[in-house]
Design a binder for these strands. Structure first.
Lengths: 131, 131
DNA sequence: CTTGACCTTACCATGATGGGAAGCCTTAGC
DNA sequence: GCTAAGGCTTCCCATCATGGTAAGGTCAAG
């Protein structure tokens, strides 16, 4: 299978497959005589694994760790669970931050008449006034 | 006032003040004979405005637009309000995405025994199995 | 006059991805 | 067998906002 077919089969772009190879996330693919990368079904499974981890927001480092544990048949599930719970903590931290931004803005938007006059509490707040 | 003092007074690093100047977000500062940038209280107010907008998650483009409206005394508050509501929509979209990731992971973590045995539903899910 | 703290510009790095160019290879149609 | 289209290769650049560092000029206090 060529890189394009592996990309279609896995949902990872050819560009990213090459990138994953250069950073050592996946082992370098075998090559044909004409230097084309060759992939098998196992490789596609690995790429799908990576794709799912990324979709769940795991960083490349976390994904790499998860991949290693996946391939280590004698792993302890506690190690996997720790990575996942740490990631949940990160996600919830980000959610809280974004939620605070949104709440502040919603309050300001609620106070803004939004007409053709210049008076605007949103700008007043950004300017740092007490009002 | 030198750039370092302006940085302290505004909460924006000297590095970022220079960057904002190069991308045209702020007008180039006057210089002393020895080529040092000089800032006044108005400049510090502008930098604080930018800092607050960034803290609320506005992009540089949005911040630039807000800055322009702030400085335009004949603005319509509707223009400000539109930028803010659009940004709230973006924020809520991101929150939803992150929340979905966290929810999925929480479910998986709940199902994982997290001991020294290898069996792990988190990896099983990432591998794409039906279970 | 020296020392240390500050300023200047210029370049590199981040993280994960996309885009494009230049050149080689393969496959399908004629 | 020839040609055109499309796929593959590597290499370089861009994103977005920020931080770091290095080499060199400037200023103020002792």
């Amino acid at each position: 299978m060529n890189i394009g077919q592996a990309a279609k089969a896995s949902g990872v772009t050819a560009k990213m497959i090459r990138y994953y190879e250069t950073i050592g996330l996946i082992t370098p693919a075998d090559r044909t005589e004409s230097n084309y990368r060759v992939y098998g079904t196992d490789d596609v499974h690995t790429l799908r694994f990576i794709k799912r981890a990324r979709t769940l927001g795991f960083s490349m480092d976390e994904t790499s760790a998860l991949l290693g544990l996946w391939q280590d048949k004698s792993r302890a599930s506690a190690d996997v669970k720790r990575i996942a719970t740490d990631h949940i903590t990160e996600l919830e931290h980000k959610i809280t931050e974004l939620q605070e931004m949104a709440d502040t803005l919603k309050h300001l938007v609620h106070c803004c008449s939004g007409d053709d006059r210049p008076n605007c509490p949103i700008l007043t707040q950004l300017a740092g006034a007490d009002t």
